[in-house]
Write a protein that binds this DNA or RNA. Structure first.
Lengths: 165, 165
DNA sequence: TAATCTGTTCAATTTTAATTGAACACAATG
DNA sequence: CATTGTGTTCAATTAAAATTGAACAGATTA
């Protein structure tokens, strides 16, 4: 069967919701297409496949595939198996707790960890050097303090966000 | 007196700290130059002026001016008055509480507000339309719930981060 | 096995964001 | 008032990121 690349028309409602999630994506350093895809899935009445989304948003297959991969990577969407169809169908995950913790684990945690590594390296440099002023020692100590606090924030945010569902 | 654009050499320690803040800047959606500037000021033994920073980092005057403007905008740096010198001198603000709340107010809050506006528009659209499924009503309700939680997070994060100083 | 369907990958392209550098504004100085 | 010092602005440029589209891989079907 030939795929129909029919003209895409988003309802005013869909457009607004998509625009909202595009904004969020931007805030989270994610590509625009990720926000668009999630916005459509969030308002979808039923599971959608890659081609449904590609056509609806009028974006390329590559972008769609990449965007869905990112959304899957932190659990913002789920794959739904539709019997008798070879395609993968997707629905938006509706638990903010799951999305937020997925995002935290996949997108934030690695940064915090590489930050810790770098901070260790900084400590080493500080100890190697002989003539380091007390002021610099203080600064690096402060850096460690900040790092410690940053590490404390994430779990609390997740607990706060994930209250009920 | 002629300005000397001497060759910039960052110590290994400075380089590492700058690299750390460049990473943070990237995480926060700020230009690289902002991370570089803050990194240098954070480790500086004494207040520095625009030209000091420009030369040390080997970046343009425009970039330096822009970067300092951004850092000032959320209170990550302070202007220090040096008597007898016409230049502006800067030091890194050392209170994480102040920096975080400045950042929250200047960079995050506006997004949350425009999000609220858009959500109101979405509600209006939902009410205008006659044949909207119950499912869509639920989705928009969930959106409002998410927004509400997002608004609750910020103050808690600030309180948590700003513990002592 | 060939033909088709589905999704992924990645080099080339397009788009977006950051940086540069020269022109400018303003203040202070001679 | 002309000159110098300081910092800002913004159009042009450069650099970085996202998107495209065609080639590809694997899975299914005939």
């Amino acid at each position: 069967m030939k795929t129909e690349d029919s003209v895409s028309v988003l309802s005013a409602l869909e457009s607004e919701v998509v625009a909202l999630f595009v904004r969020v994506a931007d805030l989270l350093n994610l590509p625009r297409s990720v926000g668009e895809l999630y916005g459509i899935l969030f308002m979808a009445e039923s599971p959608m496949c890659l081609d449904d989304l590609r056509i609806k948003l009028n974006i390329s297959k590559g972008s769609t595939s990449q965007g869905l991969k990112i959304l899957r990577s932190f659990g913002a969407i789920r794959v739904v198996y539709v019997p008798g169809d070879r395609k993968d169908f997707y629905v938006a995950e509706s638990s903010l707790r799951k999305i937020a913790s997925g995002f935290a684990n996949e997108q934030i945690q690695p940064h915090l960890e590489s930050g810790s590594d770098r901070l260790e390296r900084i400590q080493d440099l500080l100890n190697e050097e002989a003539d380091v002023s007390g002021m610099l020692h203080e600064r690096v100590e402060r850096l460690e303090n900040w790092q410690k606090r940053a590490n404390q924030v994430l779990p609390v945010v997740l607990k706060l966000i994930g209250g009920k569902g």
